Computed example of a mutant assay.
Amino acid sequence: MAKAEEFNTGDVVQLVSGGPEMSVKTQHSDGEYNCQWFAGKKLEDGWFPGASLKLIKKRGE
């Protein structure tokens, strides 16, 4: 099994299956990432396994 990509705080990611672009907020030691995104004007957040995410752009790019 391939190792999931690692993301850093501030990276912009998206679910492999699609959906909104999200910013990585924190990483848990078990490889899950807390991400946040806007749904309209409301800030949402949730935890996602690293394998379910793809990188859109690195922080600062």
Rank of each mutant, 00 (worst) to 15 (best):
G18R: 02
S23L: 09
D11L: 08
G31N: 06
G50N: 05
T9S: 12
R59W: 07
M1A: 05
D45Q: 11
L53Y: 01
P49Q: 09
G31H: 03
G60C: 04
E44A: 13
L55M: 15
L43F: 01
K58V: 14
A2L: 07
Y33H: 03
N8F: 08
A39T: 10
T9L: 07
W47D: 08
K41V: 05
E6C: 02
G60Y: 04
E32Y: 09
W47C: 05
N8W: 04
E61V: 12
K58W: 05
R59I: 01
T9G: 06
D30M: 02
T26C: 02
Q27P: 00
K41Q: 08
S17T: 13
M22P: 01
W47S: 12
E44M: 15
H28K: 13
S17R: 11
S17M: 03
A4N: 08
G60T: 08
G10F: 13
S52K: 01
V13F: 06
F38M: 08
G40L: 15
E6Q: 15
S52D: 14
N34Q: 14
W37K: 13
G31K: 04
P49I: 01
E61S: 12
S29M: 10
V12D: 01
I56D: 06
L53F: 04
T26K: 14
F7T: 00
V24H: 03
T9I: 10
G18S: 02
E5N: 14
G60L: 10
A39G: 11
L15W: 10
